[in-house]
C-alpha cells in the first residue's frame, strides 16, 4: 500500500547516469573513430591531375550552382553531434557530483560489507596475507587485549569492530560464510532489503503526477511508435540495391513481360527510368512524360529555365542508383539486351551525349557537331582513329579553331581509358586446370591505355609480368590482389550534376543461349598510370624497339563465378563484357572458354 | 459491364484493367478468325488451300532465282511469307507454321545478301536466331551482313558466338579474323 520513495535521491541518479553512459559511450567512440577516419580517407588518385583541373574549368555555371547548393557538408570537429556528446558528458559529471555530495548515498555505502576494507588488505591478497592481517587485527581489537581505560562507548565500538573483522575473515575463508557473502553480500545471510519507487514522492503522488502519467503515455504511446514506424517504413521502402521497392517491382514487371519483339534501345531504358517511384516522391505534381523530356534535354545539352534546370539536374543525379537497380533486376532475369543497353544509357547520361555511332567523338568537350558531321573526309568515329591524324587536322575534323580549346579537347581525349586484354582465363586457386565441380573465377590481365597509344601485341609482355603470388593467402582470397590496386580517378564529366568516379561493369554470358548468368561486378580499382606514357602512334615508327614492358603497369581484374564448374569434362564458352559506365570507347567484349579437365 | 456487338461479333468492357483488356483482345482475335473460317469442321491441321497458295508463290520465287531475276524472286518470296502470316489461323499447328516460315526466310536472306540489302537480311537472320535456329550458316551470314554494314563490334560478337557453338568452323574463323582486323582499323 505504501511505497518508499526516493526522497533522498539515492537511486534515481544512478539510473540516470547509467542510461546516459550507455548512450554516450558508443556515440563518443563513433565520433572519435569518424574524426580519425575522415583524415585518412583515400583521395582520388593524383594520376590524372590535368583532367581534374579541366573537370572544374569546363563545368557550366548552372551545374556549379547546383553542386554548391547540394554539397554534403563535411562535419568537422565542431558539429552538432560533437556538441551533444559534450553536453551529455557534462550532464554525467553533474550527476556524479550530485551522487558524491549526497549524504544518504554515503550512508548507504558505508553499510556495505567489504571484508577487504575491514581487514585492510588489497582485493588480490593471498590466503597467507589474509590470515596474517586477521591475526594482527584480532590481536589489536580483541576485547581482552584492548586498553583498559576506555569508556563504555569506546569499548562497544571496538567490540563491534572486532566482530566485523572476524566476520570479514570468515567471509573470505569459511565455506558457509563465504557462500553467504557471495550470494547476499553479507556473511550473515540475506539482509533487510527495501523496495520502492526510484522517483521522488512529489512526482508520483502530488500535483505533478498527472504530468508524469502524460509523459509516459506520450513516450510509449506516441514518440516510440512514431520513431519505430518511421524507421520500419524507411527500411521496408528501399531495396538492397538502394532503389524504392515500387521502382524495383516496376522494373521487374517490365522485364517479366518483356517480349522478344520489343526493340531495345536507350530510349526504352529512359522511358522505364521516367516511371521511377523516386521521381514521383521528389516531384509529386510532375508526371513521367516531364521526367522523360528532362532526361532528353540533358542528353541534348539543352538549357532550361532556372527552376526546371534544378529539377532536371536532380532527376539526372538520381539515374545513377536507378540504373544500377535496373541492372540488378535485368541480370537476375538473365536479359542480355536490357543489361547492355542500361550500361550504355548510363554512359550517355554521364557524358550528356546520346548513344550514336559518333558518341566517342561527341562526348569530348568543344566539339562542333555540325562541322564534324558535314566534314569528315575519312570516316572518323573512334578516338583511336582520331589520333591517327596530326593535331591541326584533328582541329579541322572536330571543328575547333581555337588553339587552347583544341588542347583541352586533346587532353581529355587522350585520358579516356581503353582496356586492352592481355590474358584471360578461368582459374581455380591451387589447381592448374579447372576440374569438374570446382569453383573457378575469371582472372584477367588488362592494360589501361590511351587512345593515342600505338597498339602492340600482348605477346610483347613476358609471362613473368602476369604472374601473381601463389602463396596460401592468395589461394584463400584470390580477389585480394585485385583490391590492392588504386581506386580509379575521378570521371571527366563536367555536365553531370555531381562529381563522380566510376569504372566498369563486368557481365558474364553463357554463349550457348546468349543469356547473362550472374549479377554484374563493379570494377573500380585499376591503375591509370599508363595514360601518362609517351607512346604516341603518330610518332612511334618501330614498336619492337620502342616498347619497354617495364614502363607499363598491368592491371588485374578478378571476376567471381557464381556457379561451380560443370560435372563433365569439356569446353564451355562464356562471353565476358566489361562495359564502362563513364566513357564511350572504353569497353571490352570477348569470349572465354572454360576447359574442364580431370 | 461486358457488351457484345452482334455486327462485329466483338466483346468490349468498360473500365477494363490491363489483364482484362488482354484477355478480351485474345478472345476477339479468336472470334474474328472463327468468323472467317468457312470450314465447319476445322482442325489444327494447316489449311490445305493456304498451303497450296504459299507453296506456289514460293516455287515461283525459286524459279526466278534460278533465272537470276533476283528482285522479282525477292518479291515472290516476300509475298509467300506475307500469306503465311495472314492466311493462317491462330489455332493452326505452330510447329508446321514455324518450319514453313524459317525455310522461306532462309531463301529470302540469301536473296537479300546477293542484292546488297544487308539490313533486310539482318532482320531475317535475327528472326531465325530468335526462333531457335542457331546453326553455323546463320551466324556466318549474320557476321557477313554486319561487316558489310560496318558494325565490326557486333560482327565480332556474332562470330564468336558462332564459334562457341561450332569451334572448328573454318568460315567462321576466317570471318573472325576479318572482323578483328576491320575493328582494329576502325579504332585507328
Amino acid at each position: 500500500q505504501s511505497y518508499d520513495y526516493d526522497e533522498k535521491a539515492e537511486t534515481w541518479p544512478f539510473f540516470a547516469m547509467a542510461v546516459l553512459v550507455v548512450v554516450l559511450l558508443p556515440l563518443t567512440l563513433m565520433q572519435i573513430y569518424e574524426l580519425f577516419n575522415s583524415q585518412k580517407e583515400e583521395k582520388f588518385g593524383e594520376q590524372t591531375s590535368t583532367l581534374n583541373e579541366l573537370n572544374q574549368v569546363l563545368v557550366p555555371q548552372s551545374i556549379k550552382k547546383f553542386r554548391a547548393k547540394y554539397k554534403v557538408k563535411k562535419s568537422g570537429v565542431w558539429s552538432k553531434k560533437t556538441l551533444i556528446v559534450c553536453l551529455g558528458w557534462c550532464l554525467v559529471a553533474v550527476i556524479w557530483k550530485t551522487i558524491d555530495s549526497n549524504e544518504a548515498v554515503r550512508e548507504a555505502a558505508s553499510t556495505i560489507f567489504d571484508p577487504y576494507l575491514l581487514l585492510d588488505i588489497s582485493t588480490s591478497a593471498t590466503e597467507k596475507e589474509i590470515r596474517s592481517a586477521y591475526r594482527k587485527l584480532s590481536i589489536k581489537f580483541h576485547p581482552d587485549k584492548v586498553a583498559k581505560n576506555l569508556s563504555e562507548q569506546q569499548r562497544a565500538v571496538l567490540e563491534e569492530q572486532y566482530v566485523l573483522i572476524t566476520k570479514a575473515y570468515k567471509a573470505l575463508t569459511d565455506e558457509v560464510t563465504r557462500e553467504n557473502y557471495l550470494q547476499y553480500g553479507h556473511p550473515d545471510g540475506p539482509q533487510a532489503t527495501s523496495h520502492g519507487i526510484a522517483l521522488p514522492r512529489f512526482l508520483v503522488e502530488s500535483s505533478a503526477s498527472p504530468f508524469v502519467v502524460v509523459g509516459y503515455i506520450a513516450l510509449l504511446g506516441l514518440i516510440l511508435p512514431i520513431f519505430v514506424s518511421r524507421w520500419w517504413s524507411r527500411t521496408q521502402s528501399v531495396t538492397k540495391k538502394g532503389i524504392h521497392v515500387k521502382t524495383a517491382s516496376y522494373f521487374a514487371d517490365r522485364l517479366f513481360n518483356f517480349k522478344p519483339s520489343q526493340v531495345v534501345t536507350s530510349d526504352l531504358i529512359l522511358d522505364w527510368l521516367s516511371n521511377a517511384e523516386e521521381y514521383k516522391i521528389m516531384y509529386p505534381h510532375l508526371g513521367p512524360k516531364v521526367f522523360r523530356n528532362l532526361l532528353n534535354d540533358h542528353l541534348q545539352r539543352a538549357s532550361n529555365g532556372e527552376d526546371l534546370n534544378e529539377i532536371k539536374l536532380r532527376v539526372v543525379a538520381k539515374t545513377h542508383s536507378l540504373l544500377f537497380g535496373l541492372l540488378d533486376v535485368s541480370t537476375n532475369f538473365r536479359n542480355t539486351e536490357i543489361s547492355l543497353a542500361a550500361i550504355d544509357t548510363f554512359k550517355s547520361i554521364v557524358q550528356a551525349t546520346p548513344v550514336s555511332p559518333e558518341s566517342q567523338i561527341f562526348q569530348l568537350p568543344n566539339v562542333d557537331q555540325k562541322r564534324f558531321s558535314e566534314g569528315s573526309v575519312d570516316d572518323v568515329r573512334t578516338l583511336g582513329k582520331l589520333f591517327t591524324y596530326d593535331e591541326k587536322k584533328i582541329g579541322q575534323i572536330l571543328g575547333i579553331s581555337d588553339e587552347s580549346r583544341l588542347q583541352e579537347t586533346l587532353k581529355v581525349a587522350s585520358f579516356i581509358p581503353r582496356l586492352k586484354l592481355l590474358k584471360a582465363e578461368f582459374k581455380v586457386p591451387g589447381e592448374t586446370v579447372v576440374t569438374p565441380e570446382s569453383i573457378p573465377h575469371i582472372a584477367l590481365k588488362v592494360l589501361v591505355v590511351s587512345p593515342k597509344h600505338k597498339a602492340f601485341p600482348p605477346s610483347k609482355f613476358p609471362q613473368v609480368f602476369f604472374e601473381e603470388e601463389q602463396d596460401f593467402e592468395a589461394q584463400k582470397d584470390p580477389f585480394a590482389s585485385a583490391l590492392e590496386q588504386p581506386p580509379v580517378p575521378q570521371t571527366f564529366a563536367p555536365l553531370f550534376p555531381v562529381e563522380r568516379t566510376g569504372g566498369w561493369c563486368a557481365l558474364v554470358m553463357l554463349q550457348k543461349d546468349g543469356k547473362v548468368i550472374q549479377t554484374p561486378l563493379v570494377v573500380d580499382r585499376l591503375s591509370f598510370s599508363n595514360l601518362d606514357n609517351d607512346f604516341d602512334k603518330r610518332e612511334i615508327k618501330d614498336v619492337e624497339a620502342s616498347f619497354k614492358p617495364e614502363n607499363w603497369v598491368v592491371g588485374t581484374i578478378k571476376i567471381p563465378f557464381s556457379q561451380p564448374a560443370p560435372p563433365q569434362n569439356g569446353d564451355y564458352f562464356f562471353r565476358v563484357v566489361l562495359k564502362s559506365t563513364e566513357y564511350f570507347g572504353s569497353d571490352l567484349d570477348f569470349t572465354l572458354p572454360m576447359m574442364v579437365r580431370d | 459491364s461486358l457488351t457484345y456487338d452482334a455486327n462485329s461479333k466483338l466483346l468490349a468492357l468498360e473500365d477494363a484493367s490491363f489483364d482484362e483488356l488482354m484477355n478480351l483482345s485474345q478472345i476477339n482475335k479468336l472470334t474474328q478468325n472463327l468468323v472467317g473460317e468457312s470450314n465447319p469442321n476445322f482442325t489444327p491441321q494447316p489449311r490445305e488451300t493456304s498451303t497450296v497458295m504459299i507453296k506456289k508463290l514460293f516455287e515461283t520465287g525459286l524459279q526466278q532465282t534460278k533465272q537470276h531475276k533476283f528482285p522479282e524472286a525477292l518479291k515472290s518470296i516476300s509475298l509467300a511469307l506475307e500469306m503465311s502470316q495472314r492466311k493462317r489461323a491462330p489455332w493452326e499447328a505452330f510447329a508446321v507454321q514455324l518450319q514453313e516460315v524459317q525455310f522461306m526466310l532462309k531463301n529470302r536472306v540469301d536473296l537479300c545478301l546477293v542484292q546488297g540489302r544487308f539490313v533486310d537480311a539482318l532482320q531475317d537472320l535475327e528472326f531465325l536466331q530468335n526462333t531457335g535456329l542457331t546453326t553455323s550458316d546463320v551466324f556466318i551470314r549474320k557476321t557477313d551482313a554486319l561487316i558489310k554494314l560496318q558494325q565490326f563490334e557486333l560482327a565480332k560478337v556474332e562470330c564468336e558466338r558462332g564459334l562457341s557453338l561450332d569451334p572448328s568452323n573454318v568460315k567462321l574463323k576466317a570471318l573472325h579474323m576479318e572482323s578483328t582486323r576491320r575493328l582494329a582499323e576502325y579504332n585507328g
Binding site: 522478344p260 519483339s261 526493340v263 555511332p357 | 491462330p90 507454321q97 539490313v119 532482320q123 528472326f127
Partner: peptide
C-alpha cells in the same frame, strides 16, 4: 503462334531502328 506473329511484325520496326542507330 501469336508470339511468332508479333516477332515477324516487328521486323519493319527493327529495320527502322537499326537504320537510325547506324
Amino acid at each position: 503462334n501469336q508470339a511468332m506473329a508479333r516477332r515477324y511484325e516487328s521486323i519493319l520496326t527493327r529495320k527502322e531502328v537499326n537504320i537510325n542507330q547506324w
